[in-house]
Nucleic acid binder design. Structure first.
Length: 873
DNA sequence: ATAGGGTTAG
């Protein structure tokens, strides 16, 4: 057990993990004065009670606790007119957690993917000569031959006039990705230029061109050369390099450079500040960091402009700060700063990322009145938001709207549309999108194929997967890391370990390098097959290879606990009879022999029948998971809400309190508050822990909606599972009050489709009691009453109807008149009069009021409680 | 100097 490990700092955050850069710098932020007075909320950790355990020593987490908005998440931002003195961002809420920065990185592919398909810069009035155009044409033909470009430069030397011509050449070469020729051209030009001023111009152009191409190391070299040569110490060169860092997501390098710029006596200008804030957004810095820069800007007398605010909004997008974004938007209005399409698109992005789809639609509908017309970026942002929120119908209708509005679909829009169809298994439509796309002159790219492969794979259509993988190569598209990890995961989930192994071999042969996500995805695939122990081996393997697992990796494994019985009933397809033969030939490939991934695949391919059940036999799984927790502590991986939900869900899968108590102990080590609430409610100490519970729910409500509801679901399920039904109902009603499930509870309809089975059952009781009181108050019920469960489309398991079955069993067991609707298998209905009659029956109240299976116990310690059978329906 | 896309947990 990890009980000797001090509780690591943890945070209620789900923002993406990022394990790359220097986040230690963020600690500076805590000392910043703004972060003192921005928060007037009491620190809830100080209210912690000791819940049967000695209270923990204060930790850094307690000292640097995130603070929250005094207003609820749905409250409107404070009217700015009441605060005429604001001059900085001090009216804005802080980042939701200073620790969140650890996790709030963005995908690195984002930077690369923009490189080649970037919108071409609108040609500004260029002052280059005709000779420069000519030189460019000849230079282009030199691609790949450095001596050739030298010859061209020499040949045109006399006709090229000054840095304008050379800068034109640099830019054009850069636009074509010819960075090597651009650099030769730059060096050539600097050599022949005697004016420092002009040399400086060349240098900053070169730096920004390299930055745009993602060649940040080269950009830095050019910068250093320029500084050493005496022409690089300019605001422009610094700004260009800061911007280059921004484009590659290196925000702390950017900040460091900015500091050194000030040290060397240069005064940052508007562009410098804007580039730096942009770097914060792209590098996933927390909002506090950007806010400091903004304040610094004001102190230095540099007035922020539209782009400053747009960049700040982008920081909110990365950090998931919807309220902050709204406030910034209001602040722009107040200050009379123009809001453009970037402003709106970024704001919509933040709204969508936070799950505020309705709000996003409202904002979008207001755009035309503000003279800002939605464009293809607006639409693809919204479409992605809808798709992410599970509203695929809405997403698809937006495409029609887009065509109706005369907005042409571009590569991204097409790929987004295709990915939606593919993920729905609507392949005919997906392939039609691909056709339409090609007919518009946009070739299918790796993204297109990855979406298809993933879609076919999810439906188990492995022949189609193979076919498209071949087609992709035939079209000379190189599979990338994502392609391979998708394929390996798809094959593994299908139990096709030999195929997975072959793809893995090919992936290694291509010289690609696995990363955290690659391993995490593979681990998750094996977990989904119930192979927790193999996953644990891979966890060690990746660590040995120097790839640091992140919270997602661990959450996958925790989630797998107790799920092995649920899988592995699908028939295995093809390919098993060849294994022995293949194994013999593979023994010769020593270089592969050392690879644990291959070993695991080989083993799995050889013993398909073994698999999950055997691997998890006899309590080994719990030991394995506890060891995983221990490693998590050792590597100081901070848990997040998903971890907490995963632990609670794992508890619900325990058949004994003893096992669950081992897991709850892990929860305690991670977060005393969450533990205190879960444990307290489980013990039936509702009155005592409710204050803590409420502040915990305040925290959770900061998360995006699906994360928040998952936590409520997990907590309720755990309580329900161990017979604390009234506690479960209390939690569910609190969740409803806070609109966690964004569904409606009306007199005529109860929508349960986003709830777990425990939560849904507790909710059914509450709703029926509510309906009952309507009846007893003498009011009439609506003609038709319905209870919606959906068909499990929100479940990760395709076609899983566990919720429906649980509700059906409940409705029958309480003798209710609700029956499955004929036209909708996810809906139970009854008429108002029949339900009213049933509710008036004498025995009904008794079955509706929930009873705990066990009343509040005398014993304060969890493990003294006698073992209970897991609750059956 | 600014906006949207494809991998990981729920």
């Amino acid at each position: 057990m990890a009980s000797s490990t001090p509780p690591p700092h943890c945070t209620l955050t789900t923002t993406k993990p990022y394990n790359s850069h220097h986040f230690h710098q963020q600690s500076l932020q805590n000392n910043h004065h703004h972060h003192q007075h921005r928060h007037n909320q009491p620190n809830w950790t100080s209210q912690k009670v000791s819940l049967n355990r000695p209270s923990q020593a204060p930790t850094a987490r307690n000292a640097a606790k995130p603070h929250h908005l005094p207003s609820g998440p749905t409250a409107a931002p404070a009217p700015l007119s009441r605060n005429p003195n604001f001059h900085s961002l001090s009216t804005l809420p802080p980042s939701k957690s200073e620790l969140a920065a650890d996790f709030s990185g963005r995908r690195s592919t984002r930077f690369v993917s923009k490189m080649h398909f970037g919108r071409p810069k609108t040609a500004a009035a260029s002052r280059h000569s005709l000779a420069a155009e000519e030189a460019l044409q000849q230079a282009i033909r030199c691609s790949g031959d450095d001596r050739c470009i030298d010859t061209v430069l020499v040949k045109f030397e006399s006709r090229l006039s000054g840095s304008d011509d050379y800068i034109f050449l640099l830019r054009e070469l850069g636009n074509r990705g010819e960075w090597s020729m651009a650099i030769r051209c730059f060096e050539f030009a600097v050599d022949r230029e005697r004016r420092r001023n002009e040399q400086g111009k060349l240098a900053s152009s070169m730096i920004s061109i390299l930055g745009r191409l993602g060649k940040v190391d080269l950009a830095k070299k050019v910068f250093e050369t320029a500084v050493n040569g005496g022409y690089g110490n300019t605001v422009y060169a610094y700004s260009a390099l800061i911007s280059a860092y921004a484009k590659s997501g290196f925000c702390y390098e950017a900040i460091r450079l900015f500091e050194s710029m000030k040290v060397s006596g240069l005064k940052p200008n508007l562009v410098t500040y804007n580039a730096l804030i942009d770097a914060c957004g792209k590098g996933g810095a927390d909002f506090g960091r950007a806010s400091e820069i903004f304040d610094d800007m004001l102190r230095s007398g540099v007035q922020p402009d539209r782009i400053t605010y747009n960049s700040l909004l982008a920081v909110c997008s990365g950090a998931g700060l919807w309220e902050t974004a709204r406030n910034l938007f209001s602040e722009m209005l107040y200050k009379g700063i123009d809001q453009d399409i970037y402003t709106y698109n970024t704001l919509l992005d933040v709204a969508c990322n936070g799950g505020h789809i309705d709000m996003a639609f409202e904002i979008m509908s207001n755009m035309p009145a503000k003279n800002v017309l939605p464009n293809e970026v607006t639409y693809s942002t919204m479409i992605r938001g809808c798709a992410k929120a599970g509203r695929l119908d809405r997403a698809l209708s937006l495409f029609n709207e887009m065509k109706y509005a005369g907005i042409k679909l571009d590569r991204i829009s097409y790929n987004t549309l295709l990915a939606i169809y593919a993920s729905l298994g609507r392949f005919e439509e997906a392939l039609n999108v691909a056709k339409e796309m090609e007919s518009m002159g946009i070739r299918k790219d790796v993204v297109t194929y990855n979406a298809l492969l993933d879609g076919f794979g999810k439906q188990g259509m492995y022949d189609k997967v193979n076919e498209h993988f071949r087609e992709m190569k035939r079209e000379k598209l190189s599979p990338n890391l994502l392609t391979y990890s998708t394929l390996i995961s798809v094959y593994s989930k299908g139990g096709l370990y030999k195929e997975a192994m072959e793809v893995y071999r090919e992936f290694k042969q291509e010289g690609l390098k696995a990363d955290v996500v690659f391993y995490s995805k593979l681990i998750d695939a094996l977990c989904k097959k119930g192979l927790v122990e193999s996953s644990a081996v891979l966890l060690d393997e990746m660590t040995k290879k120097g790839i640091r697992p992140n919270v997602v990796t661990y959450n996958s494994i925790i989630n797998a606990f107790g799920q092995s019985a649920a899988v592995d009933n699908e028939p295995q397809i093809e390919s098993s009879h060849l294994i022995v033969l293949e194994d013999a030939t593979e023994m010769k490939l020593e270089d592969h022999e050392e690879d644990r991934v291959i070993k695991i695949f080989k083993q799995l391919a050889a013993n398909k029948s073994r698999c999950a059940k055997e691997e998890s036999r006899g309590g080994e799984e719990i030991i394995c998971v506890l060891e995983v927790f221990q490693k998590m502590h050792k590597l100081d991986i901070k848990p997040n809400v998903v971890t907490f939900s995963a632990i609670l869900n794992a508890c619900s899968r325990c058949s004994s309190f003893e096992e669950a108590s081992l897991l709850l102990e892990e929860l305690r080590l991670f977060d005393n508050q969450v533990y205190g609430v879960a444990h307290g409610l489980l013990m039936g100490h509702r009155e005592n822990v409710w204050v803590q519970a409420l502040s915990l729910f305040d925290e959770v409500k900061q998360m995006d909606s699906s994360t928040a509801s998952a936590f409520y679901n997990a907590l309720t399920d755990m309580l329900w599972h161990f017979g604390q039904k009234r506690g479960a109902q209390l939690v569910v009603l609190e969740g409803k009050r806070r609109h966690v499930w964004e569904n409606t509870w009306s007199d005529s309809c109860l929508d349960l489709h986003l709830m777990s089975s425990g939560a849904a059952r507790a909710m059914v009781h509450a709703w029926l009691l509510n309906i009952r009181s309507i009846v007893f108050e003498g009011h009439e019920l609506p003609k038709l009453l319905s209870i919606l469960t959906g068909w499990g489309k929100h479940s990760k398991v395709v076609g899983d109807g566990a919720l429906k079955r649980a509700i059906e069993a409940l409705l029958i067991s309480i003798g209710s008149p609700f029956r499955i609707s004929k036209c909708n298998i996810g809906r139970f209905t009854s008429t108002g009069s029949v339900v009213a009659a049933w509710l008036r029956e004498s025995g009904t109240l008794k079955v509706l009021v929930l009873q705990d299976d066990r009343t509040q116990t005398e014993s304060p310690r969890f493990d003294h409680i006698p073992k209970l059978q897991p609750l059956l329906l």
